[in-house]
Simulated scan of single mutants.
Amino acid sequence: MKALALLPLFGCLIMSNEAKVFSRCELAYKLQEAGMDGYEGYSLANWICMAFFESGFNTAAEDDNADGSTDYGIFQINSRVWCNNHRSPTENLCYMPCTDLLSSDITDDIICAKRIVKDPKGMDAWEDWTMHCKGRDLSEWVDGCDL
């Protein structure tokens, strides 16, 4: 009987690990810890701006594309090239299932984003970064964060 009483609590704990919407400064701190500030020449503010326009800082974000691929997670990583969604053809260059990109633990998202930005397109691989962040003063994205 006690086990049944703990079941809802256990369910909440599992649910809380599945997805997360980060605050701007919380994500900035997490990305700074992971060495993203200055990675491949892109400031921390670039990464924060991109993540905002791609997912609204939501790790559970998914977006289906006209070509049959899907974008996943906080950086909206595409299944056609970077991860395997087991539904559409993929190169799976990050060697991971796309569902790994939907959890509150963004370690694998960061590893894959680092792989993506090493390609010749750099951050231009993210259309929203190109449209909303590239070439702009992005200091507001990290202003007020205790980094």
Results as ranks from 00 to 15, higher is better:
Leu7Ala: 11
Lys20Phe: 03
Gly41Lys: 13
Arg115Met: 14
His132Gln: 15
Ala113Ile: 01
Asn78Cys: 15
Glu54Val: 04
Lys2Pro: 05
Asp37Leu: 08
Ser16Tyr: 02
Ala28Gly: 12
Ile77Ser: 02
Ser88His: 14
Gly144Cys: 05
Pro8His: 01
Phe53Arg: 06
Ile116Trp: 08
Arg24Met: 14
Ala113Gly: 03
Trp126Ser: 01
Leu147Met: 15
Glu18Lys: 11
Leu7Thr: 10
Tyr72Thr: 05
Met131Tyr: 14
Ala3Gly: 11
His86Ala: 08
Tyr29Thr: 08
His132Thr: 13
Cys133Tyr: 04
Val81Gly: 11
Glu33Ser: 13
Met15Thr: 08
Met96Leu: 13
Asn58Ala: 02
Glu18Cys: 10
Trp141Leu: 02
Asn58Leu: 00
Leu147Gly: 12
Asn85Glu: 02
Trp82Ile: 01
Glu127Phe: 12
Leu93Thr: 03
Ala66Gln: 08
Ala125Gln: 15
Asp124Trp: 10
Glu26Arg: 07
Asp67Thr: 05
Cys133Glu: 06
Lys20Pro: 04
Ala125Lys: 14
Gly144Ala: 04
Ala34His: 06
Asn17Glu: 15
Met15Val: 03
Ile48Met: 10
Glu54Thr: 06
Ser55Glu: 07
Phe10Lys: 06
Cys94His: 05
Gln76Met: 03
Asn46Ser: 15
Ile48Pro: 15
Phe53Lys: 06
Leu9Lys: 01
Phe57Cys: 05
Ile48Lys: 09
Asn84Gly: 11
Cys25Pro: 02
Asp124Pro: 00
Cys25Lys: 01
Gln32Phe: 08
Glu140Gln: 09
Lys2Arg: 09
Asp64Ser: 06
Cys145Lys: 14
Asn46Asp: 15
Gln32Met: 10
Pro8Val: 00
Ile106His: 13
